[in-house]
């Protein structure tokens, strides 16, 4: 790279930084004018942004690995259910010898260890952000795909000094009042994903689904517990959401739940991921995200924020040509 191209890179990055950080309209106009007029600038800008995407990917991979710090099993529900028709033997053998009390979290690591030498490629099937408030419905599990449901949550922009991790909006998860008769003290949100509209029916073999979400505790002085749960059903969303909760105990349903703890004093956004084997023929994926406190529930949980939710289907390289 000679000094001319180095200087061009510097100018482009500085303009881009000004547009993004301060929404500087004159920097935006200058940047666009430069790109209109100079083919070399267009090539350099494209290269720099592709490198930025590579950087984000590398850093994200590092971040997920370092932040996957699972908590002990917090709730008494059965957390991993593999149906009889799900014949993924390596997973079952990996999980077979694991102590029951650690089953949820260890299953994920056992699973990761089993598959560590098989690279899987993510296929993003859900990544809408929280920018479209109209997709939010009022209460509980939504009846149709593509909408958010919640126990007690509101779409907000920056508030109380908390800035969305992505875009301009995030979800504020209000704590469940102590006097509430709700089954769980976690403030939860729900999403139903219609897998039939995604390019997943062609996936065969050892596919997994990965749900990733980022949480922020408004009060960082106390501990927080976060939940990610995924449930795959071989019914349409309309059928799957009818009498949903009893079905999660059914042998024909794949369900994985994992909780993550944040210690007091840890500030900022925390990103967590859960992976679950995706059975062939699954039509509907229901996922739940929750936030609450590690305490026994005698004290109200702090307010939490949720943003940057992604769902990917991971398919093995071995299926690639």
């Amino acid at each position: 790279m000679n000094s001319d191209s180095s200087s061009l890179d510097h100018r482009l990055l500085a303009l881009l930084q000004a547009v993004r950080d301060t929404h500087d309209e004159s920097a935006r106009a200058t940047l666009n004018e430069l790109l209109r007029a100079d083919p070399a600038a267009r090539a350099a800008m494209a290269r720099l942004l592709v490198d930025e995407q590579a950087l984000i990917g590398r850093l994200r991979d590092d971040s997920i690995v370092s932040l996957l710090d699972p908590a002990p099993l917090a709730e008494s529900d059965k957390v991993v259910r593999l149906p009889r028709w799900f014949t993924w033997r390596p997973l079952i053998s990996a999980a077979a010898g694991i102590v029951l009390g650690m089953f949820c979290t260890s299953m994920v690591f056992g699973f990761a260890a089993q598959r560590r030498f098989e690279k899987k490629t993510p296929l993003v099937v859900y990544s809408p952000g929280l920018e479209i408030a109209e997709t939010f419905v009022a209460s509980g599990l939504p009846k149709v795909a593509g909408q958010w449901g919640a126990d007690s949550a509101v779409v907000v922009t920056t508030e109380n000094g908390v800035k969305p991790m992505e875009g301009r909006q995030m979800l504020r998860l209000d704590p469940i009042p102590l006097e509430s008769k709700a089954r769980s003290r976690m403030s939860r949100v729900y999403q139903v994903l219609d897998l039939r509209s995604q390019p997943t029916p062609g996936v065969t073999g050892d596919a997994e689904v990965q749900v990733t979400a980022s949480f922020f505790a408004a009060n960082s002085d106390v501990s927080s517990r976060y939940l990610i749960r995924a449930v795959a059903l071989n019914e349409s969303p309309e059928q799957a959401t009818k009498g949903f909760w009893p079905k999660t105990d059914d042998d024909g349903v794949v369900s994985v739940k994992q909780t993550f703890d944040k210690s007091p004093g840890e500030q900022g956004w925390h990103t967590f991921s859960l992976k679950m084997p995706l059975p062939h023929g699954a039509q509907t994926l229901v996922f739940l995200l929750g936030a609450g406190t590690v305490e026994d529930g005698s004290q109200p949980a702090p307010t939490h924020y949720l943003d940057d939710v992604h769902v990917s289907v991971l398919t093995p390289q071995s299926t690639q040509p």
Partner: peptide, 20 residues
């Protein structure tokens, strides 16, 4: 299967294209 295999292989490049 062939289509999904091709899409999964090339999805990172497509993401980079959209990002750029």
């Amino acid at each position: 299967s062939r289509f999904i295999a091709a899409l999964t292989r090339h999805q990172p490049a497509l993401e980079a294209f959209c990002h750029a």
